[in-house]
Amino acid sequence: MSKFTTIASAVLGVLALPAMAQMDHGDMQMQGGQPPVDARDPHAYSGGFTLDEGPYALPGPRQLKLADEHWFYGVLADRLERVDNGDEQILAYEVEAWAGRDYNRAVIKAEGDIEHGRLTEASTELLWRHALTGFWNSDLGVRYDTGHGPDQGWLAAGVSGLAPYWLELDATAYLGDDGQTALALEAEYELLLTQRWVLQPAIELTAYGSNDVERGQGRGLSNLVAGARLRYEISRQFAPYVGWEWQTALGKRADQLREEDEATQENRWVAGVRFWF
């Protein structure tokens, strides 16, 4: 095609735009509505068989289901580790299990410490999780703590999800059976160094509404935990890791520990495995 022909075609196209703009689109027949009388019968080549009638029809309720109509389940052991704080070694765990569909599911979250073969501190939550958007969920349920002072029950309400730049966030408010209130904030990020080496920094902040010395709770910001774990994914479902964690008491809780001649900060080395199925 010559340069002159190309230029002429472009000019004619521009000149035709006003005429196209004056077209009455109301007269155009769009897709939908009643088919024309001479339309092809969609069952003409099926021998009269359909999904609901004929020898190939399946009995019972509708057989075809979308993905969000199926039940799924999963178990994630995010932390199963040996903790060394310089004075003693502790076995710590953090496990989450869920069952349900895409929009609604039941969730169990459990974490705690085991010393000398005995469970010394534990926290267990039973939640109903509902999908608010494609990346955020609401959590409603109960929590039960044991080990540090008298046992304590809570009502729980929070949100969890994936923020921009792949930052995982979890914020939960609690109302205790004795009128105590609490707020827990967690954030973590997974940095892929390679396809198998993953660095996972995390931070956790806890606040309480009133002082409870017996349970180790101080009014206001009470505890801060920050650390990082480096894991090697032998497979996507199983990965050993090593890491370091720093924990400090804040505000009233730090004052309580000083009065008891206890340390307000602690450095811990950890080693464990992360797996899911």
Rank of each mutant, 00 (worst) to 15 (best):
269 W>A: 09
111 E>K: 03
1 M>N: 13
170 D>L: 07
218 G>S: 06
64 L>V: 15
73 Y>W: 11
227 G>K: 01
155 L>Y: 11
258 R>V: 00
80 L>D: 06
52 D>W: 13
90 I>S: 09
97 A>E: 00
260 E>M: 13
154 W>V: 03
73 Y>T: 00
157 A>Q: 03
112 G>D: 12
27 D>Y: 06
263 A>L: 12
221 L>V: 00
233 E>S: 05
31 Q>N: 14
186 E>D: 11
262 E>K: 15
91 L>K: 02
33 G>A: 11
20 M>K: 14
76 L>A: 12
199 L>R: 01
186 E>P: 02
14 V>D: 15
72 F>S: 12
89 Q>H: 13
127 L>R: 00
166 W>V: 06
246 W>N: 08
188 E>H: 04
87 D>H: 09
237 Q>K: 14
93 Y>L: 05
46 S>K: 07
92 A>V: 00
92 A>I: 03
64 L>E: 12
52 D>H: 14
32 G>C: 09
54 G>D: 07
174 Y>S: 02
9 S>R: 10
53 E>V: 08
248 T>S: 13
42 P>Y: 00
46 S>T: 13
212 D>K: 04
24 D>Y: 04
165 Y>H: 09
98 W>I: 02
272 G>K: 07
134 G>I: 03
21 A>H: 14
171 A>I: 15
217 Q>A: 13
249 A>V: 07
241 Y>V: 01
251 G>K: 06
118 R>S: 15
107 V>Q: 11
68 D>I: 07
18 P>T: 06
70 H>V: 13
196 R>S: 08
219 R>D: 14
156 A>I: 02
23 M>N: 14
100 G>R: 04
104 N>K: 10
36 P>E: 11
265 Q>W: 02
224 L>W: 06
195 Q>T: 15
252 K>M: 12
122 A>F: 00
66 L>V: 00
241 Y>T: 01
195 Q>Y: 11
46 S>D: 09
113 D>M: 02
8 A>N: 06
267 N>S: 14
